[in-house]
Design a binder for these strands. Structure first.
Lengths: 142, 142
DNA sequence: TCTTAAGGTGTATCAATCATACATCTTTAT
DNA sequence: ATAAAGATGTATGATTGATACACCTTAAGA
């Protein structure tokens, strides 16, 4: 069980933006700060913008910035949105499920409850908590 | 984020064995009951046996059965053991980590806490809970 | 003691999906 | 008009998980 790189990068983008609230950052700028793929970040940023978490400004002089205060951005909500695609287990994807005991077995609801607990725990933290040590992060990215 | 088929099959094997405690089941028998790969099940069963969750008896007339009462088999422990391989996120795999802000960033401990909450929630349930509706499961596998 | 049925183990291959690149379009400042 | 920025869709590459296969070991029973 692991988070996709997509989710990982999502969090990195948000942390970067939280370092300098208000500053318009470009995708190439963020990608080079972390030394990661610009192309991949484009999609991460796009999804964040669609979700309203960040604000994107097109055209020359454009860029992206947080749409709200880092203290209001709960990690559970972010990770849930980023990890949206896959079903946790076969029987939770009715379209492709082939397990014969799905009707009778109690696994699905129990798993959902457990993942709710995971996301709730994450929701106890905000983006601001991730970058509590702002100075050290800035230094690492310089 | 999702469980591997390996974990899924692990739970299915245990549920099958819990239906008829004491009965020695063979791998082909379990595989055909669920209509899944016999080869893959072999490894699942092997790992369960190594972990002491089930007891395996080699040779003709052999098979596998639960090593203890289904009410004592906690789901969190089972899933944790099955999902052992992958790191949740890059920075939790020091050997291959390339993230520049690992030192300063608080993501790793927060994720560990959240996954602990997940497994604790699973540990509130046992194998017996999964097969509470034993008759219906037997019917589905017949 | 030979055969057969069972699990144990390692390797190889296939397939899925995630990560990444590329091409092109749209928007906006200058 | 041009350049710089994000938006979007498609294609490719690489990882790894799922599966198959081959062969070994163990033990029952004829």
């Amino acid at each position: 069980m692991r988070l996709t790189t997509f989710t990982d990068y999502t969090l990195r983008v948000l942390m970067y933006l939280a370092l300098e609230p208000g500053h318009l950052a470009t995708v190439p700028e963020i990608a080079s700060a972390y030394g990661i793929s610009e192309n991949h970040l484009v999609k991460v940023v796009h999804r964040l913008a669609r979700g309203g978490v960040i604000e994107s400004i097109r055209g020359k002089g454009g860029g992206v910035r947080l749409a709200c205060d880092p203290r209001e951005i709960r990690l559970g909500r972010i990770v849930r949105a980023a990890e949206t695609d896959a079903a946790i287990v076969e029987c939770l994807a009715p379209a492709s499920n082939t397990c014969r005991i799905t009707r009778a077995c109690r696994l699905a609801p129990i798993l959902l409850e457990a993942f709710d607990a995971l996301y709730e725990t994450l929701d106890a933290y905000t983006l601001a908590d991730l970058v509590a040590n702002r100075k050290a992060i800035r230094r690492a990215l310089a």
